[in-house]
């Protein structure tokens, strides 16, 4: 039996990262920036770089003050000379963390109706939460083949701890649905009727909170009941 064996969580992480990268490129293209991503297939959205060059050439040719030196050599696109931002580097991945209050969180859960949602509630100050987090990631990997289950994590931390939350998630190679719930820990405990974090919650496909525990072992057992492991 394995305990806390260091594991990579490439499957979920890489798909989210690819999605983020596609979104990023799409945004760059839309904003007129011609930065290219060699690792990605050409995006169907936005003008083809060759077409853009042609358009620039036509404009220049139509300019009465046009001089060949104006385009030879063509000025490189700004983004091509600017080092890519840290967040775009594969060696320093980032994670998206949605900041929510209780209402916002329940809206998100509502939006996931039709799927079972399994949530690890933690906090940056909670050492036991962080110690058990890899175990949750193992579960997430174990059930990655089950399209009916969504895994998420929720940090019960003040909004000004967002960077610490992200840092922990990045360090844990945990790029999946993440929330930051900026509510008093006492309200958290009252709201979910749990003894604070760590708390592991399961919302049924109907969007009902059907299971809660402070023990990852109990969550493991419950998941095995709900969905026998596929691998």
């Amino acid at each position: 039996m394995k305990f806390f064996a260091p594991r990579k969580h490439q499957s979920g992480a890489s798909s989210s990262m690819s999605l983020s990268a596609v979104l990023f490129v799409t945004l760059l293209v839309i904003s007129g920036c011609k930065k290219e991503e060699p690792n990605l297939p050409p995006t169907p959205v936005g003008p083809d770089p060759e077409v853009s060059k042609l358009m620039i050439g036509e404009k220049k040719a139509a300019d009465p003050d046009f001089k060949p030196n104006d385009i030879i050599p063509p000025p490189p696109p700004v983004a091509a000379t600017t080092p890519p931002p840290k967040s775009d580097s594969t060696s320093a991945p980032t994670v998206d963390v949605k900041e929510v209050d209780f209402a916002g969180f329940h809206k998100e859960i509502e939006g996931l109706k039709g799927k079972i949602v399994v949530i690890d509630c933690w906090a940056t100050w909670c050492s036991i939460c962080k110690e058990k987090f890899p175990k949750f990631l193992e579960l997430k990997d174990k059930y990655s083949a089950d399209a009916n289950i969504v895994f998420a994590n929720l940090a019960n931390d003040p909004a000004d701890k967002l960077s610490d939350v992200k840092e922990f998630l990045v360090k844990s190679n945990a790029s999946f649905l993440s929330f930051l719930l900026d509510e008093d820990p006492a309200d958290f405990a009252q709201h979910f009727q749990v003894n604070g974090v760590p708390a592991y919650l399961i919302y049924s496909a109907d969007g009902e909170l059907t299971f809660k525990t402070g023990k990852i072992e109990e969550l493991t057992a419950k998941l095995a009941e709900l969905s026998p492991p596929k691998n």
Binding site: C126, I128, P185, A186, N195, G196, V197
Partner: peptide, 10 residues
């Protein structure tokens, strides 16, 4: 009775 909140006792 209320829920308690804080750091888990190890």
């Amino acid at each position: 009775k209320t829920p308690a909140h804080g750091c888990g006792i190890q």
